[in-house]
Design a protein around this nucleic acid. Sequence first.
DNA 1: CCATGCAGTTAACAACTGTTCTCCGTAAGA
DNA 2: TCTTACGGAGAACAGTTGTTAACTGCATGG
Lengths: 205, 205
Amino acid sequence: MSHTLGVRQAKKQKTRQALLDAALGLLEEQSLSSLGLREVTRAVGVAPTAFYRHFQSTADLGVALVEEALGSLHPMIAGTVSAAGDGDERIDRAVDLIARHVREYPAHIRFVARERNGGVQKVRAAIAEQLDRFTGEVKAELAKHPESAGWSDDDLLMLAGLYVDQMLMTACNFLEAPAEEQDQVARVATRRMRLISIGSRHWLG
Amino acid sequence: MSHTLGVRQAKKQKTRQALLDAALGLLEEQSLSSLGLREVTRAVGVAPTAFYRHFQSTADLGVALVEEALGSLHPMIAGTVSAAGDGDERIDRAVDLIARHVREYPAHIRFVARERNGGVQKVRAAIAEQLDRFTGEVKAELAKHPESAGWSDDDLLMLAGLYVDQMLMTACNFLEAPAEEQDQVARVATRRMRLISIGSRHWLG
DNA sequence: CCATGCAGTTAACAACTGTTCTCCGTAAGA
DNA sequence: TCTTACGGAGAACAGTTGTTAACTGCATGG
């Protein structure tokens, strides 16, 4: 087990997390490339220069946020594909999992959706890498199911990517939709994934 | 026919276009919410105050860019779905059309992809509106084909949205991929759309 | 218990931002 | 031809930005 880190490092990680949280909050109404270092420290209530003790640029902060945001997204994606039940039942469960996750960590998925094609190269690369990892995991999960017997690795990866992209877009739609339209978003997302699932069942032959 | 607009208005629209072009160029390496008014005018070689003669904020400039970027995207989407030939042939032609369009207007699609979930509300709304319009057109085109007989309006709209999103993501993948991987992007995109097409053929019943 | 190291502060820097006001030249319309 | 309207220039404004330097207080390890 890890040593109980000293009071010193504990305080440091505390303000570091405060910086990350404040940044995530500010990023709900702007993109990373316009996020100022002073803006973040001001929101935390700390001197601007303290920022450099933790990150050497806002781009670095962004990369750290990618870890945090997609780290929380990780178990969701795993649960999405490995859910039990038959095809349609699994899809319903997956969409529900996505909706629940969006309600719990809205800022996380907003950040990922926004910066996936955002203006900061390093952050884009970090997101792409993590998303590729997810796609690989989904592919592995897909390979376990009997329905995908005889599939080539390439085709499995293609299907996994399709699902991952679909999940992210669905999450984004949940985010943008007002409360009274959430059900409709869920219905459309379900039908989309069902169509993909049908397509995959008739892919071979 | 429209009157030949005077020398005055011609000059005005010329610098207006110069502002749009310069902004589009600058936006390849940052997002709209960090684009400065002075930055744009400096790139054009015009006084900062001249900006206000054309737009009242960079957000307004962004909305104008949406019109331009998705205006150029319009014929492509139309051609994508209405292409002749059988299913697989149509898909190949569509992917090729997308690749060609990306090579011709890279900045346009980069802008749309980046600001679709970007930090500027008005621009996001403008993009969403235009994309919805496109989805409607694709749906109308889909309805003409005999394969979609018996489909409900809702399902047609769902499928059209799936295709539109897929096109945009494909375009984005072309943009990010280096020259030697373009073929692979095309192959994956083709297989994705083929799977969707297969799914749509088995959707009913 | 004391010396060292480090998180955080304060002050200052040049550079940059959006915006306003005043002015200039000239195309447009009478 | 004369007046007006308008695209654009110029200067100035208060406020902001990232970054540096030297400083302070305190937890840490010997």
